[in-house]
Design a protein around this nucleic acid. Structure first.
Lengths: 147, 147
DNA sequence: CCACAATGATCGATGCTATCAACCGCAAGA
DNA sequence: TCTTGCGGTTGATAGCATCGATCATTGTGG
């Protein structure tokens, strides 16, 4: 299923997910229907899970990105998860090993907005806030996949 | 530029970036060329920065995701950045405030592969490795943007 | 060894889609 | 008021997606 051609297809879609099947076909030396069928199978196998637009958060009015490490108090875990979901500014949240820890990425308009959110978190967890300065690498897949 | 219609367009592209202009037009009550023109402008303004396919890393042979917090030794910063870029398994890297710190997300095939990478990092930084158990939230944009 | 699915490709027809040009209406400014 | 520019519509056209028919290849059972 994951042969060299599908790797190339995924690589091309990684670079531009709105590319046409015809164009993809040219790149992998296959007809458009053949590519469409391969992609349909990748989707229904759950390998391709969607297509997303990438946007500039800064230009959309969210100049501040923060990563908050939350060590949730043992008894407050359920409550914490509910709180997380209630905040629209939570852009990403990953659950990691070690002391009920979550890494929460927040996109906010201002530091005061960040502060307000952290206030709410601090009742349920020990927080450690890091401001995100830059994102030197942002891939969806390891490069080895394409080799 | 960022009016209610463009918010809807971005929201729709967020859900499925391969949707047609005609379909987008139906949703925002505009003709296909009008939508195409709006998107063209969003792209050239750098607000829309691309379209990406989303994939299941597990199904592609990378069952292990780790987040490594690296406190880079003051004199080794340049060297560390070079090392990062040399590793294909680095899927994301964010530079955060506090003691030359980086958060590095790694996608690997096995724990031994992870170990090998950490070996290399440890010469240049204090590392704190967290295994990623789940990703309860993974949005590209705060929900407030759509309200 | 030969039939015979099953798979995965191509090709051709058809309806949709993107794209371009021409045109229109409205709002801001001279 | 005139005019200029912006953002929209419409219609034509070329290209694309999609479907069915067909064909080659491969692996399997008689």
């Amino acid at each position: 299923m994951i042969d060299a051609i599908n790797r190339k297809i995924i690589a091309a879609l990684q670079q531009n997910a709105r590319i046409s099947y015809a164009e993809l076909g040219k790149r992998v030396h296959l007809s458009a229907p053949a590519v469409a069928e391969r992609i349909r199978k990748l989707e229904s196998a759950g390998i391709i899970t969607g297509y997303r637009v990438k946007v500039d958060l800064d230009k959309l009015g969210y100049p501040i990105l923060a990563m908050v490490q939350c060590k949730v108090y043992r008894t407050k875990e359920r409550e914490f998860k509910a709180l997380l979901l209630s905040y629209d500014e939570v852009v990403e949240c990953i659950n990691v090993t070690g002391e009920q820890a979550f890494l929460v990425k927040l996109a906010v308009e201002s530091l005061s907005q960040l502060d307000a959110i952290l206030e709410a978190f601090i009742d349920l967890s020990d927080t450690n806030t890091m401001m995100i300065l830059s994102t030197p690498v942002d891939r969806a897949l390891p490069e080895t996949f394409f080799k």
